[in-house]
Structure formats: structure tokens, C-alpha cells
Design a protein around this nucleic acid. Structure first.
Length: 832
RNA sequence: GCCCGAAUGGCGGAAUUGGCAGACGCGCUGCACUCAAAAUGCAGUAUCGAAAGAUGUGUGGGUUCAAGUCCCACUUCGGGCACCA
């Protein structure tokens, strides 16, 4: 398209996005239309986009996500809300560290350069944020409060250290939380994860499992169902029982009681062996001396496997006998105790009773080691001992003593009662969710504010000594991953006096997972300049919960689960007055190219800044939003930014043809066009409530078409209705194409900014049409259309329909069985 | 294997409580303007058929005066989880 008049001279009658983009930013900076008043004069609304990680410049994905969030923020502003719409950066993390190693620099250089680049791009992209609230999680003024919050968790026993086999990424040389392992590989770099036994910091998120689950009731209907489903699965609540099995005294090893978790206590009589997780300390504890060597060999073998290999369900079952025997508390049977890797150390109790007839994994193991199989629930299917297929359905209990004859559910209840009476078990709930491993052996993160003292143990850094800042003189190779934190090598940073006894002590040298930083940033935005607390409680309670949160589905579990957890803890600490941080969630889709995610390796990336240079900000924003419903993916190969550009020019040109004065009375204008305008405004509001942004744009296009028609071949540009329509176009367009809308508004003779012009007031009387088209069907097929008054009676419409020539022709003399009338829209005639 | 979600023209997509399927846009075709082009405007564009008309929302059944929409069974695609006892 041409953006300049042919003579090379800017022509004020030709739409030029470059001219328009140059005209308005300074004016917006002067007017500050996006700063919330926060004076209680208007209802508050908090709209938030997931804050970006500063990896280079903005890309197409940012452009889509932030276009969506901005529509919401701008809409609420037009509706008269006091809108908080802030921006910040999630600026700690590995990429900065890796870049620093390559460039022999400090991670902050790369980080803050990228932030500046992105901030400039966001300004050009005209997102309507309050820049004065900008924050970065890597600023000491921010991470001071991340540390402060960590200490509050620590005081409540919600942050603790333990030895445990943890996920280890050999490439990044750091541990990973369970949530950061995807299909056995590192979420960040794709390297297969291995296990390593380490002493690490954890947040006790499992204490909140039930509340994380139950409080999802508040979110149902406002969050995507699939995100709720993913969180539900991740928490993985399952009802069952703990049953204690006594391990007999053998070869001088004393008897000891070991609990198992089972969801099927009804099958207790079907237990034929007992398995402990081979990699759990319990296995080493139990094993007899004569079997110890064998177990240790087996454990070494497991360690060499990657998590992907280990978790494969295809793999043959393996294990070793421990030399011990467990007593079944219900029938006194002696069961051999095995150690195997198909039992997980950190789920349930790390030990199971094996019921091969009714659990496929146990059956596979029984077959591999020739252990007995005893069916105790007759489901009508073939005996699993013969078929090799474990049965899990309902049936009648057999071979089960006093449980015989009961159904599955009754037997579960009865079995729990029985073990409870014996004092060897109880009903219990188990979760798949594990505690959140938060330590990282890397540099560019929030230092853990704990000092280790030989005398006093784990000593918190006193609040008044926060923040514990990162040393600034580390460069390049100082940061290279070595499996221990780079901070450990900085002697004068590590060695400090113990705050309690003043004796020699050492700082904790790990840093926090960056998801800790992002678990509370939405609170900080309410009062970003607070210096004596992480946030001002009153300000937080005024603005939060976030009314609309916008971001990608890749955070369905990680960030969103952690933030929900933090919010509940802070509520319990009395720091905030609500339990869920995000009332509504919108997951925008991805931007693809040719059906695939854009990536360097595929060479199908589209550069955002080039697109902006070519088509302009507004055309790109409009294209993103118009292409599909917000939650669907946009394939850049299928869309037309030039089409958007054409439409924007068309809308903008309406301004040239409006010849009435800005203060003209619209009620004297053409009723037909006014009716279209008011219907568009009314419908757009309803569509925006439902996040159907793409449809709103379609409706504005219709309004532009109708207005153009009125100017060229209708009432003409002087009609007040044309002005009213064009003003409505400018206001609705201000949500999607801020530059064009502002310029159009200006050409209509109004002062900036259109962003705060206010949503047009709908005249209800204009929504009522003079006549409507009633459809007349014969046997469900449309045969005629009648123009009728909208308040026609059923009888009158029936008469009219039956009188229609078309209808009589179609009926062709047949009698009439029924006539269904839905005045004024439809008549359906059913012939004999 | 289990759990979600989706399927509508050449393409992206629209369709209050079941009530005119295909809004709006892209693409394509034709026309006007032009020496020509670009830009712009106008018209057409589900399929079959010359037409009348018939068919048509992944497949097969069902409910209903009426089904893209509700019910049952299935197919395909996308996503999540997956040795979780």
C-alpha cells in the first residue's frame, strides 16, 4: 500500500500510519490517560498481562498477548472504570546468566539492556499502561521483599530444607521443581533429567493441596476449564487408606511397622507381596545383610537411567528381594518384601501392598518374578492369573474372609473399618502434588536469606539487613555452571558472622527459583514504591484480586498454581484479604506460521518490528485480534495485515466526509443509520464482556460500511447521524487501533484522548426496529418471508402466513396439521 | 491408557434460550476509474443444477413442528497427564 502521496509530499487526506504514529505519543505522555486516579471516585478494575521475560526484543507472541490485554483495559476505561493496567519484567533467570558467560559480562547488563529495548517497543505498540508502576524482579528494591516473604514462610514452617532425590538438569547444572520437568526432560532446555540426592529448600505447598483444589470453585466459569482440569490433575487428590504392615524380625533386623497407601483396601486379601521404592532410604533400612549387596547394585543401576527411561511403562518390571517378610494385618499372611523402581519414593509412603489380580503393574511384576496371583474381586472377567489382565472394576468379593459377598464400595468401607478397629490403618487422602523445590544452584536469582551457623543452625537474615544483594563483580567464567552455586566461590560474600551468636557462619549460596519472584508481583503493582513492606495492604485490598488476567496456557500449572499458593499463605498471614489472586483468566493462543510454532530451527520466524514497519502498529494489533477468538492460535500465513490496513484507512477516511459541527444534535439525524450505530455499540459491549473481540471488529466493519454508504449514496456527510456513527467508530476502534482512533477523533474536532472519551450511551428506542422479517416455513423449510411489525400478534402473523401465495403454492392443496407461531420471527406450517 | 477441548465454504471465522447456516474479513472473478498500473469504488463468490429445485455444519443413529446447537454411539485432530498404588 502507498503511505506517501506520489509527489513524496505528505498529503493530509491520505492515510499514513507513519504520520499518525508520530503525532500522538507525546500528547499521550502529556495527558497520562492511563494512570489510575485511585481516589474512589470510580469503580476500580485491575487488568494484568503476564509480565514478560526480557529475552531480546518483543516478538509476535507478545504482540498478540498484549493486544488482547489492552483491549480489555481500554474497554473498561471507556466504560468509566478506574483501571490499573501495569507492566513489569520477570528479569531474573538463566538466559541472562548464559549470555553473561558468553560475553564475559554481568547478567544485569544483558537483562537491563533488553528491558529497555522491550519497554521502547511496548511504547511504540501503544499498550495503555501506567509506566510509573513499572517494576523488575531483579531490582534489589523488589527482591528484598521476595526475601522478606521467604522469611515469613520460613517462620511459619512453610519453607524448610530436606534431603531428597531431586530432579537434576545436567546441562543447566541445577535442580528443577517437579513442575519444571516435562516428559522427563528439563522444561527450559530439553535435556533429559536425572536424579540426584541433595539437601534443598522447599515450600510446603502440599499443606495447601485441599484449599488449592476447593477454591477452584471460585474460579469455575471465569477460568478456562482446561486450566482448572490441569491443576486438578496435578494436585491429584485420591481417597484411600493407610494400612500398617509389620515387617517381621529377620536375621537380627528388628520388626518394624511400615504404612502403605492404597485406594483399594477392599483387595487386602489379594495382596501376595509387598514392594518398597528401591531408591528410598527405607529400602536400605529394611534389607538384610545377605541381600544388601544385591540391592545396592540395583540402586546404582537405577541411577544411571534417565527419567524418561525410568518412567517408560513399556519397560520390563525389575526389582530385588530384600530378605524380609511383611504381615498382612487382616489375615496374618506373610508376604515377601521386594524393592523395585516401579514404586515411587515420593508418592504415598514409598511402599505398597501388591495386589496383582487387580493392578496391572503388580501383575506384570508378579509374572516377571513368578509370584502368586489371587483374585479377590469377581468382576465376571477371566481370572487375571490366567488372562494376564488385571481387573479393576466393580464385582463381588471372594477369598476375602468376612468381606466375601460384598460389592467393591461396601468392601472398601468395611475394610477401612476393620483395620481401624485393629489400630492398623485409617481412611486417608493422598495427593500427587509434591512440595515445591525452590533452590537453584545458579547466580542470577534472589539469594536465599539464610545464614548457616555451626552453632545455631539455619539462621534467618534479620529483616533490617535485607536485601541480601548479589555481588556485582562476577563476570563471564565466574558464573559458569559447576553444580554448586557460583556464589559459593565468592569468599567475602559467603563468610559472615552469625546474626545470633556472632560466630563464623556462611550464607546460603543457592538462589530462588524465578517462579518465586513471579508469585507475588501482581501484589506489588498496587503500591510499587512502598519501601517498608512488600506492598501496602490497603492498596492491595483496593485493587485486587486481578479482575482479568491474560497470558499463555504454558503457565497453566507452574506460575498460576504457585501464585494461588502464595496468595493463600499471605491471606493466612493477614497481609491480604482475599484467597484467589486472579478472578478471571484469559489464555490467548499462540502465533504460528504455516501451522507451526515460529522457531529459529524451522526458519519460519516472523520479525515483529519488520511487520510494524511495514503495516503499522494498528494494523498488526487489529490483525492479531480479528484473526480468531482470543484463545485460538493465529496462523500468520492465513491472515492479512494489509487487509487490516485497508480497513483502518477506510474508517479514518470517514472523518474527511463528516461535515457537521462537533456539537450537532444527533437526534435530528437519519434514523436508519442511528439505529445501526446504536445496535453496534450495544452489541459490542455484550461481545466484549464475553471476550469475543474478533466479532466486535466485524461489527465495526459493518458500521463503517453502513456509514460510507450513507455518505456516498444516502443522507450525505452533513447528516448528524453520520457524525454520530463516525464518533462511535473512533471510540470502539480505540480499543484495537489506538493511533488511528485518536487521529480520527481529532479530525472530528475533539480534543485528545479518545481513550477516555467514554463509551457511547445507547438509546434503547433506536434498538427497536420498525419492521422485522418473519420467516414462514413449511415443514421446517423456508418458503416465504414477510415484513411485519415487531409487535404483531400470533394470530395476525398466522393469518398472514397462511394467506401467502408462496405458501399456498407449496402446500398445494394439502391440509394443515399444525401451525407453530413464534411472533414476530417465525411461522412453521406442518402439512398433513 | 486416563482426562479435557475441537471439527462449519478455497482460507480465518460468525450464528441470544433449539428458530433464515455461512455475518465480517482474506482470497478469487468481473466491472468502473486509468494510456497502463497501483490505490479506490461497485457487483459476484457453499455444493450440484441451464433452470425449477435439491443437498449441505466430521460419521451413524435419535429427540423435536424445527438441530451447527440437545441425547446416544463412533471417527479424526489438538492439548494435558501418565508405573501416582
Amino acid at each position: 500500500m502507498s503511505t506517501q502521496a506520489d509527489a513524496g509530499q505528505p498529503d493530509e487526506n491520505t492515510y499514513s500510519f507513519a504520520d499518525i504514529e508520530a503525532r500522538w505519543p507525546a500528547e499521550w505522555d502529556r495527558l497520562q490517560p492511563f494512570k489510575p486516579a485511585d481516589d474512589g471516585s470510580r469503580e476500580r478494575r485491575y487488568v494484568l498481562d503476564m509480565f514478560p521475560y526480557p529475552s531480546g526484543d518483543l516478538h509476535m507472541g507478545h504482540a498478540e498477548a498484549f493486544a488482547m490485554g489492552d483491549v480489555v483495559a481500554r474497554y473498561y476505561r471507556q466504560q468509566g472504570f478506574d483501571v490499573l493496567h501495569p507492566i513489569g519484567w520477570d528479569s531474573f533467570g538463566l538466559p541472562a546468566e548464559n549470555a553473561a558467560i558468553q560475553r564475559n559480562a554481568h547478567p544485569s547488563e544483558w537483562t537491563y539492556t533488553n528491558i529497555e529495548t522491550q519497554a521502547n517497543s511496548f511504547r511504540r505498540y501503544a499498550i495503555s499502561v501506567d509506566w510509573s508502576r513499572r517494576l523488575h524482579t531483579s531490582d534489589p528494591g523488589y527482591y528484598q521483599w521476595t526475601q522478606w516473604l521467604f522469611l515469613r514462610f520460613f517462620e511459619k514452617g512453610l519453607a524448610y530444607r530436606k534431603d531428597s532425590p531431586v530432579n537434576w538438569c545436567p546441562k543447566d547444572q541445577t535442580v528443577l521443581a517437579n513442575e519444571q520437568v516435562v516428559n522427563g526432560a528439563c522444561e527450559r532446555c530439553g535435556t533429559p533429567v536425572t536424579k540426584k540426592s541433595l539437601n534443598q529448600w522447599y515450600f510446603k505447598i502440599t499443606d495447601y493441596a485441599d484449599r488449592l483444589l476447593d477454591d477452584m470453585d471460585q474460579l469455575r466459569g471465569h477460568w478456562p476449564e482446561r486450566v482448572l482440569a490441569m491443576q486438578r490433575n496435578w494436585i491429584g487428590r485420591s481417597e484411600g487408606a493407610h494400612v500398617d504392615f509389620v515387617i517381621e524380625e529377620t536375621d537380627g533386623k528388628p520388626a518394624q511397622s511400615v504404612p502403605v497407601f492404597t485406594t483399594r483396601p477392599d483387595t487386602l486379601h489379594g495382596a501376595t507381596f509387598f514392594v518398597v521404592a528401591a531408591d528410598a532410604p527405607l529400602a536400605l533400612d529394611l534389607v538384610t545383610e545377605s541381600h544388601r549387596a544385591e540391592l545396592e547394585d540395583y540402586r546404582d543401576g537405577i541411577k544411571s537411567l534417565s527419567e524418561i527411561e525410568r518412567q517408560s511403562t513399556e519397560r520390563e518390571k525389575t526389582g530385588v528381594f530384600t530378605g524380609r517378610w511383611a504381615i498382612n494385618p487382616l489375615n496374618g499372611e506373610k508376604l515377601p518384601v521386594w524393592a523395585a523402581d516401579y514404586v515411587l519414593a515420593d508418592y504415598g509412603t514409598g511402599a505398597i501392598m501388591a495386589v496383582p489380580a487387580h493392578d496391572q503393574r503388580d501383575l506384570d511384576f508378579a509374572k516377571a518374578f513368578d509370584l502368586p496371583v489371587r483374585m479377590v474381586v469377581d468382576t465376571g472377567a477371566e481370572d487375571p492369573a490366567v488372562s494376564g489382565i488385571a481387573t479393576t472394576g466393580d464385582g463381588t468379593l471372594v477369598n476375602s474372609g468376612e468381606l466375601d459377598g460384598l460389592g467393591k464400595d461396601e468392601a472398601i468401607a468395611r475394610a477401612i473399618n476393620l483395620v481401624a478397629e485393629h489400630g492398623t490403618g485409617e481412611h486417608t487422602v493422598n495427593y500427587r502434588l509434591r512440595d515445591w523445590l525452590l533452590s537453584r544452584q545458579r547466580f542470577w536469582g534472589t539469594p536465599i536469606p539464610i545464614i548457616h551457623c555451626a552453632m545455631c543452625g539455619e539462621v534467618p537474615v534479620p529483616d533490617d539487613q535485607l536485601p541480601v544483594t548479589l555481588p556485582e563483580d562476577l563476570r563471564g567464567g565466574d558464573l559458569s555452571p559447576k553444580g554448586t552455586s557460583p556464589l559459593a566461590a565468592v569468599e567475602d560474600w559467603v563468610n559472615v558472622p552469625c546474626p545470633q551468636c556472632a560466630g563464623p557462619a556462611k550464607r546460603d549460596t543457592d538462589t530462588m527459583d524465578t517462579f518465586v519472584d513471579s508469585s507475588w508481583y501482581f501484589l506489588r503493582f498496587a503500591s510499587p514504591d512502598t519501601t517498608d513492606a512488600p506492598f501496602d495492604t490497603d492498596a492491595v485490598n483496593r485493587w485486587l484480586p486481578v479482575g482479568q488476567y491474560v497470558g499463555g496456557v504454558e503457565h497453566a500449572i507452574l506460575h498460576l498454581l504457585y501464585s494461588r499458593f502464595f496468595t493463600k499463605v499471605l491471606y493466612d498471614l493477614g497481609l491480604i484479604g482475599f484467597t484467589e489472586p486472579f478472578s478471571a483468566l484469559l489464555n490467548q493462543g499462540q502465533v504460528l506460521n504455516g501451522g507451526k510454532a515460529m522457531s529459529k530451527s524451522l526458519g519460519n520466524g516472523v520479525d515483529l518490528s519488520q511487520q510494524l514497519d511495514k503495516f503499522g502498529v494498528d494494523a498488526i494489533r487489529l490483525t492479531m485480534v480479528f484473526a480468531s477468538p482470543p484463545e485460538d492460535d493465529v496462523d500468520w500465513a492465513d491472515v492479512s495485515p494489509s487487509g487490516s490496513s485497508k480497513f483502518l484507512a477506510r474508517a479514518w477516511r470517514l472523518g474527511q466526509d463528516v461535515t457537521s459541527a462537533p456539537d450537532v444534535d444527533p437526534t435530528t439525524g437519519d434514523r436508519a443509520l442511528r439505529s445501526v450505530t446504536h445496535r453496534t455499540v450495544a452489541d459490542s459491549a455484550a461481545l466484549l464482556q464475553g471476550n469475543k473481540f474478533n466479532v466486535v471488529i466485524a461489527r465495526v466493519m459493518e458500521l463503517v460500511n453502513a456509514t460510507r454508504k450513507a455518505i456516498d449514496s444516502g443522507v450525505g456527510g452533513a447528516d448528524p447521524a453520520v457524525r454520530e456513527a463516525t464518533e462511535a467508530v473512533a471510540i470502539i476502534l480505540s480499543l484495537f487501533a489506538p493511533y488511528t482512533a485518536e487521529d480520527l477523533w481529532n479530525r472530528l474536532g475533539h480534543p485528545a484522548s479518545v481513550a477516555t472519551a467514554g463509551w457511547p450511551i445507547v438509546d434503547e428506542t433506536l434498538l427497536v426496529q420498525d419492521t422485522v422479517v418473519a420467516v414462514v416455513q413449511v415443514q421446517g423449510k423456508v418458503r416465504d418471508r414477510l415484513e411485519v411489525s415487531p409487535d404483531i400478534t400470533e394470530d395476525a402473523l398466522r393469518e398472514l402466513a397462511l394467506a401467502s401465495e408462496q405458501i399456498q403454492k407449496t402446500l398445494d392443496g394439502r391440509g394443515i396439521r399444525t401451525v407453530i407461531v413464534r411472533a414476530p420471527k417465525l411461522v412453521n406450517i406442518v402439512p398433513e
